[in-house]
């Protein structure tokens, strides 16, 4: 089977639309996951009764079940409870809930590294629990947790390909769909390979840049 550029060119508009869906669904999920991560880690850090152990269980549950099954449950299972989400938002929610579990754990670990001495210094300065968290704890804890949180973001982007299985027309769905119709495997796999490698590379580069910027106060 030969590589046919003309065929590929004809499919580009559809692939482009798929790529946009991949980027949109991932970007929105990343933002929500980040917010949930900060919120959840704060609850874990402050050991808020009932909520904190609940979140511990949530994190363990999400990390020890396959994302694909979580997606199936959200898309096909939840409607039984009257919870029917549009496909796009079902994708966003499943990716965000999954990534949030990893964020909570990373950030909880990051907050745990903020030492007791800093805490005592904060208390001595008259900072309240919340003030300390907002002014010292989170800024420092986020820096520690950042590398693994950014890793989670890269994983989220790659895992958006699983949404193919629930019928969301993102990049992988479009490519596999074309393959099933036209049997042009080579062109489509080349596209998937190049695009995902490029996306992961760009996201990693952005992550490294962010890390570099945030570490600025700690460099001489």
């Amino acid at each position: 089977m030969d590589f046919d550029p003309a065929y590929l060119a004809k499919q580009l508009p559809a692939l482009w639309r798929g790529l946009l869906v991949t980027i949109e669904v991932s970007a929105i999920a990343m933002l929500i996951a980040f917010a949930l991560g900060v919120f959840g880690a704060t609850i874990r850090y402050l050991r808020i009764p009932f909520l904190s152990p609940l979140l511990w269980f949530y994190v363990e549950f999400m990390r020890n079940t396959p994302l694909l099954v979580q997606m199936f449950f959200i898309v096909f299972g939840l409607p039984a409870l009257g919870l029917t989400l549009p496909l796009f938002w079902a994708g966003v929610v499943s990716l965000a809930l999954w990534a949030a579990a990893f964020h909570i754990e990373s950030l909880r670990g990051g907050l745990a590294t903020v030492g007791k001495d800093l805490h005592e210094a904060g208390t001595a300065l008259g900072l309240g629990k919340w003030q300390f968290l907002a002014l010292v704890g989170l800024p420092l804890g986020l820096r520690v947790a950042l590398p693994s949180m950014l890793n989670t973001c890269v994983s989220l982007l790659k895992n958006s390909a699983m949404l193919q299985a629930i019928g969301l027309m993102e990049l992988t769905f479009v490519a596999v769909d074309k393959m099933a119709m036209d049997f042009r495997m080579l062109e489509m796999f080349s596209v998937l390979l190049v695009v995902y490698v490029a996306l992961v590379f760009l996201l990693s580069a952005a992550a490294n840049w962010l890390e570099y910027v945030l570490q600025r106060p700690f460099r001489i």
Binding site: K158, N159, A161, Q164
Partner: peptide, 20 residues
């Protein structure tokens, strides 16, 4: 390479691409 490409794409590639 294997870490950059989504695992599902990798499996699709093996399955659909093997005939190539």
């Amino acid at each position: 390479l294997l870490r950059a490409v989504p695992l599902i794409v990798n499996i699709f590639f093996i399955f659909f691409g093997a005939p190539l």
